[in-house]
Design a protein around this nucleic acid. Structure first.
Ligand SMILES: [Mn+2]
Ligand SMILES: [Mn+2]
Ligand SMILES: [Zn+2]
Ligand SMILES: [Zn+2]
Lengths: 143, 143
DNA sequence: CTTGCTATTGCAAGTAATTGCAATAGCAAG
DNA sequence: CTTGCTATTGCAATTACTTGCAATAGCAAG
């Protein structure tokens, strides 16, 4: 568990504290590729922090997401999922087969620029989710 | 409470049943402009359907949303909200002051076309939510 | 190293949403 | 109108997530 990542000293400068709980949760997310729900995170982090409670996991995930250190998403499976990544992206999900595909944030840059021009809103949502039909499942509706 | 809307006979043809609960919930949504959460819907519909339970409200709202008869959204205030509308739209929300603004689905048409070209995915998400800063709240960060 | 302020945690209770199951009731067929 | 199939409901239990409060522990200052 490293303690010298740049975002950590930044947190401390904001007046927030680097607790073992926060460090361990962030570490699990950092070392996992993909989305984890709060209970999965709780189970993994409990190994390192025995007294940890789920309430703290929920609060910490909210906090990390607010600070922009992790991404959240409703992927349509009931539970929220969290993810650590340097790579800004969004998701396309097939309503039929559940297939999920990642798209780079670049694809939405133009839209956000358009929002700014048309409405003055400066949108910064990362990790949006769009639902529809994947190429395979579209075929099931043709014949 | 009218019983002859076009979407209703369509439901029956799909093998679904037109129960008083469904009709009343749809009716409350149809006659309300704006977003309602499940408890607000429950309270209103209970007037017409005394024995109604919240479980049925949740199940019915899920059902109506799956059938595309109502729109759902996470607007960032904890609870899900539902809305009946003929007018396809999405929302921009200010993280600072909570101001919410509606944009026509036309604004996303191009993006969805781009998704189709680049990935083959045929996206049909209506009622997406984008977060950022409204024009007023952007000023608070300049001086 | 010690002290003091206060952000953060654990605990337990509260609210939001989902689900298994047996009883009920749409509605299609006769 | 009556009958039978099964989708849908109510009920109660379960899971998901949030919150108030008192105890704990980061960490900045001395
Ligand atoms: Mn992701
Ligand atoms: Mn809306
Ligand atoms: Zn698919
Ligand atoms: Zn604002």
């Amino acid at each position: 568990m490293r303690n010298d990542h740049p975002e950590l000293s930044w947190l401390r400068e904001q007046g927030y504290r680097l607790t073992p709980q926060r460090l361990a949760i962030l570490d699990v997310l950092r070392n996992t590729h993909g989305h984890l729900n709060p209970t999965e995170i709780y189970q993994r982090v409990s190994q390192d922090i025995p007294g940890l409670t789920e309430a703290t996991v929920y609060r910490t995930l909210n906090f990390l997401a607010e600070q922009g250190l992790v991404l959240v998403a409703h992927l349509g499976r009931g539970r929220l999922v969290y993810e650590f990544t340097e790579h800004d992206h969004h998701h396309l999900i097939c309503r039929q087969c559940g297939d999920m595909r990642e798209i780079d944030h670049l694809e939405l840059k133009g839209l956000y620029k358009q929002f700014l021009n048309n409405t003055g809103y400066q949108i910064n949502t990362i990790h949006a989710t769009f639902f529809g039909l994947c190429p395979d499942c579209q075929k099931d509706w043709s014949p």
